[in-house]
Design a binder for these strands. Structure first.
Lengths: 271, 271
DNA sequence: AACAATGTTCCGTAGTATGGAACTCAAGAG
DNA sequence: CTCTTGAGTTCCATACTACGGAACATTGTT
């Protein structure tokens, strides 16, 4: 199927590396041979090369885990920085489409969600800059998505009553979250701040893990009951395309590069 | 062990991948050519292969960042799981050596430190199981190390007074942290719980980032003023070897990638 | 002690990766 | 508008590199 020439060794090594990186637990040499279908000697040589370069590590029992390169990438928060930069064009497009304030949020410990990227509303009445701001999970659309899809956990203790519409009963919230899972998006109507309505949808990474959420927020005057489903549709579509960029349910890769790729005449924000 | 034979292509691809993973920002094709000293065509072929396998990603401007494989590893917390398993033997040895309770801790948001691995004391009077437990940063040895080395931040608000020896003044704590940086280890004497003394040292990952801390805790009766420096020495040694396993200050890896290296098979020290 | 299982090294050969050059595409310059 | 320049990909003959079977180490098992 995939027969791009001139990279057999690299492709094989990459497959071994992926096999190691995907598994939650260390992988044995034998499993790697089985998974790759390569000769023992070849596998050994490739793994030694990967190990020498710090891409895999071998434990005392001879099993393999991802190496220092992965570890340091993960610890220095590379994935989050990456998320922001990969997300930027998607946010921009969603902002363009809805005209409202768009945010990307991730879970923080302590029952909070932090907005890590934003595109400002096109209207004069819109959100201020929320980047870096953390808000409670239970009263934010972003937070509800993260809760609903298991990317965050409610803290113990009472749920803060931000407005008179904030849901503070855990039972009521649980129902709400079930609805979120079913619909695929969350809505908060004046639960965080009077007059503020937000819609959010989950962003998945390769492996189906929810890593964040995408939200569209606007004043209740614009985001009426009638408008919300439309906003939600756009938001979900954007979240899906972002997920795709992160490798979630990755589209079938072109087996041959010969077929011309669909041209991207997408103009990027001038800068 | 260092006999790079039969893996030229994989080594080159690995170096390209590392170059991409190390940089905080996307790397351009031209930079990669310069850094690797490879021919354009070769570089292009290798990068295409890495991209096809999801190890690197190419943005709209054609620059490279780490791919989905890295992203999903990082998001599912692979690094932390890895830390625990890599650390286990080191903890065990430190426990053997000191006889006291040994813990590995990492920073959590909200001014807390969580113990993620433990080796129990050999004595009857020792720690209970603290894995999963979180404690405030300012009154734990682990926490002080994380604070001193920039792996955690103090929360706003008052610092909880756990015992009458807990340091609750931010100024006093700052001095304490300066001392920690200088000595290379932190000590808490009955600051978290009466009768409990702990010593902790930082664990670094590749890149010099502090990812966690290693602690030895015991009753004040055993960890006397005289014993503490000795315990600290062991603790620091263990932390250093754990850091080494994570790639910190790893033995000289040719400064970057050796440029202008025509095709001479360099004879690195005789095999 | 002999065996079994697991992983590494050897080595001749086949076939794969290599890099210069040609080519494509896009963006400025004239 | 055409010409030029730069960035990146594809092509292709060559020869060097990676391949894999088998021998060789190294441990663990009966």
């Amino acid at each position: 199927m995939t027969s791009p020439t001139g990279t057999q060794a690299v492709d094989r090594a990459a497959q071994l590396l992926i096999e190691v990186a995907r598994h939650r637990d260390p992988v044995s040499f034998a499993e790697l041979i089985a998974a790759s279908g390569l000769a023992k000697s070849t596998t050994s040589r490739l793994l030694t090369a990967l190990e020498r370069n710090g891409l895999v590590r071998r434990d005392l029992a001879g099993r393999f885990s991802p190496g220092e390169v992965f570890v340091s990438y993960a610890w220095r928060g590379g994935a989050e920085a990456d998320l922001v930069s990969v997300a930027q064009p998607v946010l921009a497009e969603l902002g363009e489409e809805t005209g409202e304030t768009v945010n990307l949020g991730v879970a923080r410990d302590g029952g909070l969600v932090e907005q890590i990227a934003q595109v400002d509303s096109k209207y004069l009445i819109g959100g201020t800059n929320w980047v870096g701001l953390t808000v409670p999970l239970h009263c934010a659309a972003l937070g509800k998505v993260l809760l609903a899809f298991g990317a965050a956990e409610l803290p113990k203790g009472r749920l803060e009553q931000r407005t008179d519409r904030t849901v503070t009963s855990r039972a009521a919230l649980a129902e709400d979250l079930a609805a979120v899972r079913e619909r695929g998006y969350a809505v908060t109507i004046e639960e965080l701040e009077p007059g503020l309505v937000a819609v959010a949808a989950p962003v998945f990474a390769d492996g189906g893990i929810v890593v964040g959420a995408l939200s569209v927020s606007g004043p209740a005057s614009r985001q009426t009951a009638a408008a919300i489903p439309l906003t939600a549709r756009s938001c979900m579509a954007a979240a899906r395309s972002l997920s795709a960029l992160l490798g979630h349910e990755r589209p079938v890769r072109e087996s041959s590069m010969s077929s011309s790729q669909p041209k991207k005449t997408e103009e990027e924000g001038a800068s």
